[in-house]
Design a protein around this nucleic acid. Structure first.
Length: 271
DNA sequence: AGAGGTACCTGGCAGC
DNA sequence: TGCTGCCAGGTACCTC
């Protein structure tokens, strides 16, 4: 369930419990995630203190003094704090146990997530070096999008979901932000005016910001908590709403496949 | 270089 | 009830 707001909420949720804490051990029950969990990772981490926690796109970055643990939640991953070790469930693949007895537990049924390591400056890691700007930063603006999309024929929805364009926009927020901006998801990215990109950028920033705030309310309890999704359900205006009346005009919301993804839109409001 | 398709994996659900 | 097929919030990597 991790889109950028959930990753950010996860970061804020676990930070107070692990920042400055020392790692007792790393337990890897299933090392076959998207890439194999590096064999020496446990050795690198043992006895080290978490010095810094950051997020880049949907990557969580936990720094210790000689390197950085890179965590990605994939499609189905989640992290939660346990006050003490409890027996793992079938998809509890990794535990980061701290010397005070608490445990950061990673659960990921589909195993599309990742636990990786780098001893280099983390921004130079191959997975991070080519990422586009953070959507909530000032680097992500209409001027940038307009020029970066120049002459591109790719559909705007695929374009904004591409992490080289901007990080953190998954299928849900791509659908929702295009609806709010009145832009048809199939429109070629290079055929959108700077004025309309202004509206799109505002829509993206507003929706992500709102979702982070909502996520903060329902995902507040990270200790022994489940972190239930669903905070965004009432906010969704098109995603999963095929056949429902459009909130603006009442026409039925349509659904189609666009670059292998379910795409929802109002054909009357979005052009 | 850009665009589109494929692969990784499990669980849930609709349809038969 | 049980089987099959399809779908799911991501994204690197391959081919054309």
């Amino acid at each position: 369930m991790p889109e950028l707001p959930e990753v950010e909420t996860t970061k804020r949720g676990i930070e107070p419990y692990i920042l400055g804490k020392s790692i007792q051990q790393l337990v890897v029950r299933q090392s076959r995630l998207r890439w194999p969990v590096p064999k020496p990772l446990a050795r690198y981490l043992k006895g080290q203190q978490i010095e810094r926690i950051a997020r880049r796109g949907k990557y969580l970055l936990l720094s210790i003094n000689h390197g950085t643990l890179i965590i990605h939640l994939g499609m189905s991953g989640s992290l939660r704090m346990l006050k003490q070790m409890i027996p793992p469930g079938p998809h509890d693949h990794v535990d980061l146990a701290f010397s005070n007895g608490s445990v950061l537990r990673y659960t990921d049924p589909r195993r599309f997530g990742a636990w990786l390591w780098t001893a280099e400056p983390v921004k130079q890691h191959p997975l991070l070096i080519n990422l586009g700007p953070e959507p909530l930063s000032t680097h992500f603006n209409a001027d940038y999008l307009y020029h970066y999309s120049s002459k591109r024929k790719q559909a705007i929805k695929a374009f904004i979901m591409n992490a080289h364009t901007v990080v953190g926009i998954g299928n849900i927020y791509a659908n929702e932000s295009l609806f709010r901006a009145g832009i048809h998801p199939s429109r070629a990215a290079g055929c959108i005016s700077q004025q309309r990109y202004e509206i799109l950028v505002d829509s993206i920033k507003n929706i992500l910001q709102a979702a982070i705030e909502q996520g903060g309310t329902t995902l507040r309890d990270f200790v022994d908590g489940e972190g239930k999704p669903g905070y965004f359900q009432q906010q969704l205006q098109v995603y999963g709403c095929a056949g429902n009346p459009c909130r603006n005009c009442g026409a039925a919301i349509k659904e189609k496949r666009l670059s292998q993804r379910s795409t929802f839109y109002c054909s009357r409001c979005q052009h």
